[in-house]
């Protein structure tokens, strides 16, 4: 059983890699299999985690049933009315709950973490002094200045209702330079970790499957 399983895993691995050459029947089969298995896997896991553990055990079989959870189940059933053409619009109620509640939840949360706290972090001493000697640390001071220019010009870039002309346009342009540096840095930072994923698969093929490594 084990050997057969490893062979299956190896063939599937090669099947996905074959996509790099071109789309082919093996990849198509792998893809179809992957979609079916994964959809069922998550459906089963969600069923046991939520419908069963959260709802059934919480609202039906519990010693002190949580009747509020029934509202969730009813809303869930209302959502399924989409399948019935004439009353399908009822499914907008649970949708309204989801969208409304999460919009409210995110609105203030993001405002605090993304806007206010970031501005708070930006407000800092420009001139950095060496903790030991008390002299100005020129390198770090330059760094804080660059950060300041980067944040401000980056923000200017994101103005939508003002034309990028004159001083404003020039500042926005500096902003795009900073954006490019960030994109480049972020890109470069990820390359290595992506390579290690490939090494993991090659290790499986050569080690677990062909026993060449190890």
């Amino acid at each position: 059983m084990e050997t057969v399983s490893i062979w299956i895993a190896a063939i599937l691995t090669l099947g996905i890699f074959s996509f790099l050459y071109k789309d082919n029947p093996l990849y198509k089969a792998c893809e179809a299999l992957f979609v079916g298995v994964s959809a069922a896997y998550w459906a089963i896991v969600f069923y046991f985690d939520n419908i069963y553990k959260k709802f059934y055990e919480g609202a039906v079989t519990a010693e002190e049933p949580d009747y509020f959870l029934w509202i969730g189940a009813i809303l869930g059933l209302l959502f399924l009315t989409r399948l019935i053409p004439n009353i399908g619009w009822v499914s907008r109620w649970p949708m309204a709950l989801i969208v409304g509640a999460t919009a409210g939840l995110w609105m203030v949360g993001y405002f605090v973490s993304n806007a206010m706290n970031q501005i708070g972090n930006t407000i800092s001493n420009i001139i950095v002094r060496d903790a030991a000697t008390g002299f100005i640390a020129w390198g770090e001071t330059f760094g804080t200045l660059v950060i300041l220019v980067g944040v401000l010009s980056g923000l200017v870039y994101f103005f939508f209702s003002k034309e990028h002309k004159g001083v404003f346009g020039a500042t926005a342009k500096v902003g795009t330079w900073f954006l490019m540096v960030t994109f480049g840095a972020s890109f470069g930072y990820t390359v290595m970790s992506r390579m290690s994923l490939l090494i993991g698969r090659v290790d499986f093929l050569l080690g677990d499957w062909l026993h060449i490594l190890r």
């Binding site: 995110w106 760094g143 980067g150 944040v151 923000l155």
Partner: peptide
């Protein structure tokens, strides 16, 4: 230095922008 200075600066600008975008969109939705 690149990660901690220019990268940080632009990330912060993007983060603030996204924050405002989310707040504005959420408000429009509500």
């Amino acid at each position: 230095w690149v990660m901690n200075v220019p990268n940080l600066a632009a990330q912060r600008a993007i983060v603030i922008g996204i924050g405002l975008g989310i707040v504005a969109t959420a408000l429009k939705v509500i």
